[in-house]
């Protein structure tokens, strides 16, 4: 079970960051927009630094539970 959970969390994080496939294939049209592409779009096309930063923080917030869990496991192993 432990292996599956580790792989699952790793893949989840990778998918949350996926950007290049979405940009190349659809660029978010036809309701396929994802967070990472949305952030890139707001930052470098609309030059809206506020919205871009906000979406980066949302990505971080989504990832924080996994981060806390990983750190907790690492400290447990270090003891």
């Amino acid at each position: 079970m432990g292996t599956i959970v580790v792989v699952w969390t790793t893949i989840t994080i990778t998918v949350l960051k996926v950007f290049d496939i979405v940009l190349a294939m659809t660029n978010g049209q036809w309701e396929t927009q994802v967070l990472a592409n949305y952030m890139y779009d707001k930052l470098f096309r609309s030059l809206d630094w506020g919205m871009g930063s906000a979406s980066a923080m949302i990505i971080m917030a989504l990832v924080t539970p996994i981060l806390v869990w990983n750190v907790w496991n690492a400290r447990k192993e270090m003891r």
Partner: peptide, 18 residues
């Protein structure tokens, strides 16, 4: 420090880009 490194593994790189 080790715990910090493990935590940083998970952080999405979009956060640091701007």
């Amino acid at each position: 420090l080790v715990a910090l490194i493990v935590g940083l593994l998970v952080v999405p790189l979009q956060l640091a880009l701007i």
